[in-house]
Amino acid sequence: MKTINVRELRAEMPRLRETLAREQELVLVSNGEPVARILPIARERRLRSLSEHRATMPMLEGIDQLIREERDRR
């Protein structure tokens, strides 16, 4: 984690992406007091459809029987 003041942040703006990739977190300070954390946004791969998402999930064998037994106990 690197601390940076407003003046340094302005100078760093053209290289901010590279700095965040290297440091993973910046703490913005003003008058020696921390005022904000700057974090990179995690870029997640978006699934195209619900069926594609379901295809990535493991199938549980016998889940129907487990659900039925649980319902019967109630």
Rank of each mutant, 00 (worst) to 15 (best):
M1N: 07
M1G: 14
M1R: 08
K2S: 08
K2H: 13
I4K: 10
I4E: 02
I4P: 01
N5E: 11
N5T: 15
V6A: 11
V6N: 04
V6G: 00
R7E: 13
E8Y: 01
R10Y: 10
R10V: 06
A11N: 11
E12H: 05
M13S: 08
M13G: 00
P14T: 08
P14S: 06
P14A: 04
P14M: 04
R15K: 08
R15G: 06
L16F: 06
T19N: 05
T19C: 09
L20Q: 04
L20S: 03
L20K: 03
A21N: 12
A21C: 02
R22E: 15
E23W: 09
E23K: 13
E23S: 12
E23A: 14
Q24N: 14
Q24V: 09
E25H: 12
L28W: 01
L28F: 03
V29A: 13
S30W: 06
S30R: 12
N31Y: 13
N31E: 15
N31V: 02
N31S: 14
G32H: 11
E33V: 15
E33Q: 14
E33M: 12
P34V: 09
P34H: 12
P34S: 14
P34I: 10
V35H: 05
V35T: 12
R37L: 10
R37A: 07
I38F: 08
L39V: 13
P40G: 07
P40F: 10
P40Y: 11
I41P: 00
R43T: 07
R43I: 05
E44A: 13
E44P: 00
E44R: 14
E44N: 10
R45K: 15
R45E: 15
R45A: 15
R45W: 08
R46G: 02
R48C: 02
R48W: 00
R48E: 12
S49I: 05
S49G: 13
L50H: 05
L50Q: 08
E52H: 03
H53F: 14
H53L: 14
H53P: 00
R54E: 06
R54K: 03
A55K: 13
A55S: 15
A55T: 05
A55Y: 04
A55G: 12
T56V: 06
M57D: 00
P58K: 08
M59P: 01
M59R: 11
E61H: 10
E61C: 02
E61Y: 04
G62S: 08
G62M: 07
G62F: 07
G62I: 04
I63T: 06
D64Y: 06
D64L: 06
D64P: 02
D64K: 08
Q65H: 10
Q65M: 05
Q65Y: 02
Q65R: 14
L66H: 08
I67M: 09
I67H: 01
R68L: 07
R68I: 04
R68D: 09
E69Y: 05
E70L: 10
E70D: 02
R71S: 00
R71Y: 02
D72G: 00
D72T: 10
R73G: 00
R74I: 09
R74L: 13
R74D: 06
